[in-house]
C-alpha cells in the first residue's frame, strides 16, 4: 500500500515539467524514506536524479519498497489537471498496474481522481560515486537560465571555465563568439542572489547547450542552482527542493579529439 500526500502539490507539477522533455519513461522508486528516480535521456548523454524525502509530505505511507514505471509525458498531462494550490495525493497498491493521482482544492470542495496505467521499464540503476569537485559554483538559477539561453543563440556548445577570477561561460558560432564572466559576489541583500565560487583547482569543460537549456526548465523549483565540475566526471547541475530533496542533472562533457 502506497499513499503520499503532498500539500504543496505545485512542487510535483514543477518537477514533472522540469524532467518530462529530457526523459520519456522512468521508474519511480518508493521506499519508507521517500521516493526517487534515476534515468538517462535517450542519447545517454544526460542523467536526471530526483529525490523527494518522506518528511516533505504531510502524510507518507509506503508499506514496502516498490517501483512504478511511468511515462512522464502522460504523468505530466495528468498533473497539469491539478491546480497550483491543490493538494496532490499519490496512491498505489502492490501488484496494481495503475497509480492514482488525487487532487484536492484547498477548500476541499473539488476532488479529482486520475488513474494512470503503469508500464514495465527495465532500466539499469547506475552507481553515482560521491566526488570531490574541482569547482562548485552556486548562483541565482534565473541568471544561469538567462546565460544558457543567450549563449544558445550564438553557438551550440558552452565552455565553462572556473578560475580564481570567477566563472566564465563561452561559446562560438557562425556569427561570432560570446563570453560571459561572473565574479564571486556575496555582498547582496538576499543570500539567494549571491554567486559563490568554491574552487579547489581551475577547471574548464565543454558541454552541449541543448542539454543545459533542458536542465534550466527546473528553474521554477529553486532560486539557486549549483554547478559542480571535475574534469573526469560529468557536470552536476543541481536544483534543491526546499526541505524535500533535489533534482540533479548530470551531463557528460564533450572532449577535444
Amino acid at each position: 500500500m502506497l499513499e503520499l500526500r503532498l500539500v504543496q502539490g505545485s512542487l510535483l507539477k514543477k518537477v514533472l515539467e522540469s524532467i518530462k522533455d529530457l526523459v520519456n519513461d522512468a521508474n519511480f522508486d518508493f521506499s519508507s524514506s521517500g521516493f526517487s528516480l534515476q534515468s538517462m535521456d535517450s542519447s545517454h548523454v544526460a542523467l536526471v536524479a530526483l529525490l523527494l524525502k518522506s518528511e516533505g509530505f504531510e502524510h507518507y505511507r509506503c508499506d514496502r519498497n516498490t517501483s512504478m514505471g511511468m511515462n512522464l509525458g502522460n504523468m505530466s498531462k495528468m498533473l497539469k489537471c491539478a491546480g497550483n494550490d491543490d493538494i496532490i495525493t499519490i496512491k498505489g497498491d502492490d501488484g496494481s498496474d495503475t497509480v492514482t493521482f488525487m487532487f484536492e482544492s484547498p477548500t476541499q470542495d473539488k476532488i479529482a481522481d486520475f488513474e494512470m496505467k503503469l508500464m514495465d521499464i527495465d532500466s539499469e540503476h547506475l552507481g553515482i560515486p560521491e566526488a570531490e569537485y574541482h569547482a562548485i559554483v552556486k548562483m541565482p538559477s534565473a541568471e544561469f537560465a538567462r546565460i544558457c539561453k543567450d549563449l544558445a543563440s550564438i553557438g551550440d556548445t558552452v565552455v565553462i571555465s572556473v578560475t580564481k577570477e570567477g566563472v566564465k561561460f563561452s561559446t562560438r558560432g557562425d556569427i561570432g563568439t560570446a563570453n560571459i564572466v561572473l565574479r564571486q559576489n556575496t555582498t547582496v541583500d538576499k543570500p539567494e542572489d549571491a554567486t559563490v565560487i568554491e574552487m579547489n583547482e581551475p577547471v574548464s569543460m565543454t558541454f552541449a547547450l541543448r542539454y543545459m537549456n533542458s536542465f534550466t526548465k527546473a528553474t521554477p523549483l529553486s532560486n539557486t542552482v549549483t554547478i559542480s565540475m571535475s574534469p573526469d566526471l560529468p557536470v552536476v547541475v543541481e536544483y534543491k527542493i526546499a526541505e524535500m530533496g533535489y533534482v540533479r542533472f548530470y551531463l557528460a562533457p564533450k572532449m577535444e579529439e
Binding site: 548523454v45 552507481g127 560529468p234 564533450k254
Partner: peptide
C-alpha cells in the same frame, strides 16, 4: 571537433 562522451563512460551499473 569535440567528441560527446556519454554518462556510461563514467557511471557503471550498480
Amino acid at each position: 571537433p569535440c567528441l560527446q562522451r556519454t554518462i556510461l563512460d563514467y557511471f557503471k551499473d550498480d
